Simulated assay, not measured.
Amino acid sequence: MGNLVVVGVDGSPSSLAAVGTAAREALRRRAELRVVYAFSLPVRPMYTPPDPAPLERLVGEAAQHARSVAPGVQVTEAVLTGEPVAVLEAESRGAELLVVGPRGVGGFIGMLLGSTAVSLATHARCPVLVAREEPAGAGPVVLGVDGSPAGEKAVAFAFTEAELRGTEIVALHAWLPEYAPVGTGVEAPERLLAEALAGHAESHPDVTVGQEVVSGETRAMLVDASRTAQLVVVGARGRGGFAGLLMGSVSQALLHHAHGPVAVVRGEA
């Protein structure tokens, strides 16, 4: 992955908020920001392609907004033909972060959260941050921990993000005692949480880490924690996920219901 943040835009207030979020992320990372508008051409006889001038103006305005939010960040622009999810998935191959809004219009017509954001979080080759129109608060980075091997990259991403933001991590592991294996006690989930964080705290000594083991359903616990978080970080597919499923129920629920921005990190390279 390169020193690049990519943001998808379409002229909606949702995507403009994503541009602001992406600009701040690029500034933290000392990365270049690439603003991308993608649109599909309907397949029908005698179709006249759209005038590129308004599209280029839209992208230019988004890029100017990024420069106003984060002066000094190098911003490039692109208007690309193709199905938006496919275009942004391709863009993600050279990026360290892809930022999108939760819903949109224009190039993303008909793609509400559940298709655009979920599809990208499922297939993008880098972490995907789904912004919200409301500014993120000043709370901690909340990290959902399940102890799965696929979740290790989410842990690493959360530590890096907390360090870049100058804030603490609240590492949360939710479990349902009635479903625990026979013979395990409270120490089992606490040990799982500690082992998942081992090594990362040592490599990020300036990041304060709080560990919380809570009894309850994971999705509900993380959605509730998102109320006071400036970012929630989860893996794309956690422990117990079926082999053919790239997106788990927890990450999907957060994309739909979290009260603030959510970063989904795939375990695969």
Rank of each mutant, 00 (worst) to 15 (best):
P71R: 02
Q74P: 05
Q74T: 08
Q74D: 05
V75C: 04
V75E: 04
E77R: 14
A78W: 06
A78K: 07
A78P: 02
L80M: 12
L80K: 15
T81F: 05
T81A: 06
P84C: 01
P84R: 01
V85R: 12
A86Q: 15
A86G: 14
A86H: 14
A86I: 09
A86P: 05
V87L: 03
L88V: 11
L88F: 14
L88C: 14
E89D: 11
E89W: 01
A90N: 12
E91G: 05
S92P: 06
S92N: 06
S92Y: 11
S92I: 13
R93Y: 03
G94W: 15
A95W: 01
A95G: 01
L98F: 02
L98D: 10
L98C: 11
L98M: 08
L98I: 08
V99A: 03
V100S: 01
V100C: 02
V100D: 01
G101N: 10
P102K: 14
R103E: 14
G104A: 07
G104N: 06
V105I: 08
G107R: 08
G107Q: 09
F108N: 05
F108V: 12
F108I: 05
I109A: 15
G110S: 07
G110R: 02
M111L: 15
L112T: 03
L113H: 11
L113N: 14
G114M: 07
G114K: 09
T116D: 09
V118Q: 13
S119P: 00
S119W: 00
L120K: 08
A121Y: 12
A121F: 12
T122R: 08
H123T: 13
H123I: 11
A124T: 10
R125A: 14
C126S: 06
C126G: 10
C126D: 05
P127N: 10
P127A: 10
L129F: 08
A131K: 05
A131D: 13
E133F: 00
E133C: 02
E134P: 01
E134F: 03
E134Q: 12
P135E: 01
P135R: 01
P135F: 01
A136W: 06
A136M: 07
A136L: 05
G137Q: 04
G137R: 02
G139P: 10
G139V: 13
G139I: 11
V141P: 13
V141D: 03
V141C: 11
V142T: 15
G144N: 13
G144T: 10
V145F: 06
D146V: 08
G147W: 09
G147I: 09
S148H: 04
A150C: 04
A150D: 03
G151M: 05
E152K: 15
V155G: 00
F157N: 10
F157L: 09
A158H: 11
A158Y: 08
F159H: 00
F159W: 01
F159L: 00
T160Y: 00
E161C: 12
A162L: 01
A162G: 01
E163A: 15
E163L: 13
R165P: 12
T167F: 00
V170I: 14
A171E: 04
A171N: 08
L172W: 14
